[in-house]
Design a protein around this nucleic acid. Structure first.
Ligand code: ATP
Length: 723
DNA sequence: CGAACAGAAATTTTT
DNA sequence: TTTCTGTTCG
């Protein structure tokens, strides 16, 4: 049980826990127990100050951190602690908006648009405004709009401040139209979620007052990565009680590209003049060597709030710096070190700058039969078939969602082509009604004469589905995908690809089932909302016995005994895109500081002499950040080529894209779904399922001659064939 | 309308 | 190098 004198904390940490009233900034370096303090502080509020859980708002950086916070409180205090609001900014705001967004003229059943949806809308805008996507690349326009929203610049304000410039003037036109469209479609984008909540509070003081009164205590973790809109939101919410506790480290601000404003934390004392500031200086995570390295890197940045960090842990082992001949050699070394260290796999993390770096490392791990998990990159929910399924659900949920409608109206093929869709779109825009309505009443529009039957077949299905929404969500999802012909079409196609897609679709249906069990009142809306707001990192399970691979960004806030930072090369890390700007280079350096300080015991840094990058072979120098580490902290093992010149695995071609099979290695063949294999007896077959069990694979193979068979790879003596 | 092909573009980090 | 976009043809 919880000891309210907090003996497990140090003096400074205790001081921070007990300082409950008024604004408080806890500014401290990595691993000094900031998050630990935040959790204990909430416990203290609940237990000693008798604050009710629903009077507390705790903002975390990821959904996973929020869930963890709740779980740890529950362990300390019992289930009632579950009633605090612990969530990300986005989840909290969506919750507020669902109940209040009608004030702003949006439907409470709004859909949340992701980047791809946003780009679709921007392309629509460009077309309507007769602007070319050469002069206004949709991605750039999106990023400008997104930054504007982070800064709480409405289209009008945007025009006033920047409209003098021709280019920004045009972008402001796009921004105006873009926002109008989203509203018409009943959709909000990621940035709207925060901005609209702020607008709601500013325009409806009674709504604000409700939440101000409710949240007697507001706490924000990772405050260094908040943007202006979030700062404004927090200020509004804490405006009444002024019990605002923010926690962060200016040296760990790594999301500037997403609008994060480091000034929020640096200027906290200016914005809240009565603020108390507490610095934590003892690091409990890393060895002295790791801390020294981190400090020597970060001290090259200017304009920091300098911090002391010390540890009572000893020096520990030196940092190991390995230079591979190529990225394959680099991966080979990482795998070899993991194999040679006698500890469980989940003690290792491999961190890198770009998601694309994971491929080579994954291949090496697979060949060594080491279990691993990759976080980030393409999310499950971003796969084409899953996005299609989601689009169907969104259309059922909100018929005004033209973007989702356009995505699935001809998927599977229903003979409703681009021309018809365009006509429908024009009519809808002219009459200011939903595309769905136009389709439904297609008979009224002579232009649509030829397509009328097909289009109405489609709307009939959707309306029928609308009626059966009551049944359990997973059954409903399945029903949607059957009735709309999506699943039947995939079944009929029966190709390697369609089989994988079907598998994913069924996994999606199970995820709906899983969702039902997480709540007492499951709704389609909340299910869709969760999908939009989860990050891959939320699924990270540190108890799963597997090496974890992720970007340095995703690793923020986590810790591991053994950490590899791979690709420590100029051009990779720091990224070549940051070379031209000192600010961006400093951000890369902070990212490096974050990476280094994830390690508790041992840090490995690896780089490659040559690497294939974007299709060309590059010879990259060692990263400047590594040069900034004093050499006495570093050990350099001999390069692989001189040590074991006979090992061919470093020049081995990776098996990634299953359809373009490479030659398998002799020791350990790898198999994956979709590959074609040859069996001595059964002949040619396609792998339906490949499960890695220890050093062997359990395979399910569909043979051309005799149907589906299950067998173990070790006994089957299979050969791979090119498709 | 839709499949197939060819040529061009674009390659960071993500709630 | 891969992935997307536009064009052509049936
Ligand atoms: N007083 C303490 N005694 C022992 N261990 C502690 C103490 N405070 C924190 N720790 C441990 O130190 C580690 C780092 O703590 P925590 O994650 O809270 O730091 P942080 O400052 O939030 O780190 P970061 O800035 O990297 O996110 C954790 O493993 C935590 O359990």
């Amino acid at each position: 049980m919880l000891d309210l004198t907090f003996p497990h904390l140090n003096d400074k940490q205790r001081e921070a826990v007990f300082a409950t009233d008024g604004p408080l900034l806890i500014l401290a370096g990595a691993g000094s127990g900031k998050t630990t303090v935040l959790i204990n502080k909430v416990a203290y509020l609940l237990k000693s100050k008798n604050v009710q859980p629903y009077n507390i708002l705790a903002i975390t950086f990821t959904n996973k951190a929020a869930a963890e916070l709740k779980m740890r409180l529950e362990n300390m205090l019992g289930v009632y602690a579950q009633d605090i609001w612990a969530s990300t900014f986005h989840s909290a705001c969506v919750k507020i908006l669902r109940g209040n967004i009608k004030n702003l003229d949006y439907p409470s059943q709004f859909n949340i648009y992701d980047t791809a949806d946003q780009l679709t809308v921007i392309k629509e805008c460009l077309r309507e405004l007769n602007l070319s996507d050469k002069n206004f690349p949709p991605k750039q326009v999106l990023s400008a709009i997104s930054r504007a929203k982070d800064e709480l610049l409405t289209p009008d304000l945007f025009e006033q401040t920047l409209g003098g410039d021709y280019r920004f003037g045009q972008i402001s036109k796009i921004y105006h139209l873009y926002n109008r469209k989203l509203k018409r479609y009943g959709a909000v984008d990621f940035d709207d979620i925060i901005m609209l909540t702020v607008q709601l509070f500013e325009q409806y003081p009674d709504v604000l007052s409700l939440y101000q009164t409710k949240f007697k205590y507001v706490l924000v973790d990772e405050y260094q990565d908040t943007n202006h809109a979030q700062y404004r939101l927090v200020s509004l919410l804490a405006g009444k009680h002024r019990n605002l506790c923010v926690v962060g480290d200016d040296d760990q601000s790594i999301y500037k590209f997403r609008g994060a404003d480091i000034e929020n934390i640096l200027g906290f004392e200016k914005q809240f003049p009565e603020a108390k500031v507490i610095k934590l200086e003892e690091n409990y995570r890393s060895t002295q060597t790791i801390l020294d390295a981190a400090n020597n890197i970060i001290k090259n940045n200017i304009g920091r709030k300098g911090k002391q960090l010390w540890t009572s842990k000893g020096a520990g082992d030196k940092i190991i710096l390995y230079k591979g001949q190529t990225e394959y050699d680099e991966a080979r070394y990482i795998v070899q070190q993991i194999e040679q260290t006698a500890t469980s796999y989940n003690d290792f993390a491999v961190l890198y700058r770009m998601n694309s770096q994971s491929r080579v490392i994954e291949d090496a791990l697979t060949r060594a039969a080491i279990p691993y998990r990759v976080l980030g990159g393409l999310r499950f929910y971003d796969r084409k078939e899953i996005k299609d399924a989601i689009a169907y659900l969104r259309v059922v949920f909100n018929k005004g969602d033209n973007v989702s409608l356009k995505r699935i109206i001809n998927e599977p093929k229903r003979g409703i082509g681009a021309t018809t869709v365009e006509k429908v779109e024009q009519i809808a825009a002219r009459e200011e009604i939903d595309m769905f309505e136009v389709c439904k009443n297609a008979n009224r529009y002579p232009q649509l004469e030829r397509a009328v039957v097909r289009v109405r077949q489609f709307t009939d299905v959707i309306e029928r589905l609308n009626i059966i929404q009551q049944q359990p969500l997973d059954a409903f999802v399945q029903e949607v995908l059957i009735q709309t012909g999506y699943i039947p079409a995939l079944e009929q196609e029966n190709s390697v690809e369609s089989v994988t897609r079907l598998e994913n679709i069924y996994e999606f249906i199970s995820s709906a089932k899983e969702y039902i069990h997480t709540t007492d009142t499951p709704t389609l809306g909340e299910f869709l909302e969760n999908i939009s707001l989860v990050a891959d990192i939320d699924n990270y399970d540190e108890t799963q016995n597997a090496v974890v691979l992720m970007t340095l960004h995703s690793a923020k806030g986590l810790e591991f005994p053994f950490v590899f930072i791979a690709g420590a090369e100029e051009g990779v890390f720091p990224s070549y895109l940051s070379f031209s700007s000192n600010d961006e280079l400093e951000e890369e350096r902070r990212l490096c500081y974050v990476g280094v300080t994830r390690a508790k015991e041992q840090l490995y840094i690896t780089h490659a002499a040559t690497r294939t990058l974007f299709g060309a072979t590059k010879h990259n120098l060692l990263s400047r950040f590594v040069e900034e580490i004093p050499t006495e902290l570093i050990d350099r093992p001999a390069s692989h080529m001189t040590a074991q010149p006979k090992d061919i695995s470093s020049i081995y071609i990776p098996v990634y894209n299953q359809s373009k099979t490479a030659k398998p290695s002799k020791q350990m063949m790898s198999f994956s779904t979709g590959e074609t294999v040859l069996h001595k007896k059964f002949g040619r077959g396609i792998i339906l399922k490949a499960v890695n069990v220890g050093n062997d694979y359990h395979l399910e193979i569909a043979f051309d001659s005799c149907g589906t068979k299950q067998l173990m790879a070790a006994y089957a003596n299979l050969t791979k064939v090119e498709n």
